Simulated scan of single mutants.
Amino acid sequence: MTETKELRGQFLLWLGAAISIAEIMTGMLLAPLGFSKGFLAILIGHLIGCGLFLLPAGYIGAKKHQTAIQSTKVAFGSTGVLLFSLINLIQLIGWTAVMIVNAISAMNGISSSLLNFKNSIIMGLVIAILIIIWLLVSENSLYRINLIVVNLLVIGAGIMIFLIFKAPVSHTSNGLNMTFGSAVELNITMALSWLPLIGDYTKSTKHPLAMSTISSFSYFFGSLIMFTIGLLLTTRTGFTDFTSFLATSGLGIIALFIIIFSTVTTTFLDVMSATINIQNIHSFKHMKLISIIIVALGLVIAWVVPIDNYQNFLYFIASVFTPLYAIVFVTYFIMKKTLPYWLNIIWWLMGIIAYYQLQKFDFIFGTTIIILFGLGLLVYLSQFILPKSHFRNIK
């Protein structure tokens, strides 16, 4: 594959990941700030999440030809890779279930309006089967399919923006409270949900900087638009339910297409990375079969487990992976050597505790940025206290 085609494929991959109803629904939560402040929070949060986290994480994976979780080995060793692979596997299966739940709910709403029909079992099976098809096709076929689908999704997003401006203006409050700091944090955490995945898709390149840059920029661009659509929808029309808007928009079958394929192109990456994390824990020959099992597991969870508020799920991901990658970044980019693995584990656990404690203070640029620089500084200063014999040089 040529460099141009490789980068174009990566751009489409991450643009497809960003175009999802989850991003739109999260953007709708920012409506209490109003459009101007809400958009500023979206912009700042995405700059922090994509620029300070996704870009360096993708670069490390590309430079070392390692998956996102394997790249933590520089600071935590092989045992750390196993631990974080297990944690990441759990959150990826959770994300798979969340995405399927959102899709089932939205599809039922649209099909009920169009066809007077709704069935969670059938809707879930449709999504699961399409995800499996994405998993089974060859790389070249996937490139061509993604090219078509993502372009159609971009057109669909443009149509939604047109319909939002066409709809009657209403400023009905959604009854939620949202501070600027918590809005920024929510944007950062959505980007951070991809942090333990991005290296999985940059590791095979010969062009580390270009690949990591195009990946993080593509997600930044797509996610920024999706968040803005959600914010604009609620602040301009008063809709607090994205499905209700689609059902009354006149899009018809196009609305179902947007829901189904935006879910598939996003969830596909979660399932692929979950499979990769299983390989980190134990090597299996039949990766495609493992992927299908993960889809089935996510589908069953979506059917039987109530998943009402994934905002706390996002905060959990941020609390775990922000301190983890803060330590990895300082170790790899600045120190060029690692503290003892046990000490980094202690710093990581302290970072998790600090995240939840600092949440109470509602910093204007979010809690994540405090953890990144604060914990990073503490890890850096630790090298001046310990004897040199405790350090390991990294390659």
Rank of each mutant, 00 (worst) to 15 (best):
F333W: 06
S105V: 11
L375S: 07
I164T: 11
I145C: 06
S218T: 00
H207S: 15
I129G: 04
V126R: 10
T263A: 10
A302V: 02
A62P: 03
Y219H: 03
A68I: 07
F76V: 09
P340Y: 07
F321R: 00
M160C: 13
Y332H: 14
L33E: 01
I129D: 01
F84Y: 15
V149E: 05
A106M: 09
G175F: 03
L256H: 05
H286M: 12
T322I: 14
H282C: 05
F373A: 11
I21F: 04
I100G: 01
S215Q: 02
I121W: 09
F329Y: 12
I290R: 02
T96Q: 08
N312C: 03
T202M: 03
L54F: 01
A302G: 02
I258C: 04
N88D: 06
L135G: 07
K395S: 14
L86F: 15
G376P: 04
F363T: 13
I229G: 09
L251I: 10
A296K: 08
H207M: 12
I353F: 14
S212A: 15
L29W: 06
I254E: 04
T248M: 11
Y356G: 10
T243H: 02
V379H: 08
F245G: 00
N277D: 15
I370R: 09
E6V: 05
L13A: 11
T205I: 04
I122M: 12
A354Q: 04
S78Y: 11
Q279E: 14
S78Q: 14
A247T: 09
Q357W: 15
L125D: 02
I21W: 00
I90R: 02
N102I: 08
A68T: 09
A255N: 08
M178D: 03
I188K: 05
T67Q: 08
Q91G: 01
G34A: 06
M123Y: 04
L7K: 11
I104E: 02
T248E: 14
L372H: 00
L147P: 00
L299Q: 00
S170H: 08
F245I: 05
D200Q: 07
S111H: 03
W347N: 02
A106D: 04
S138H: 09
T263D: 02
F162Q: 04
S212M: 01
L299D: 01
L339G: 12
N280P: 05
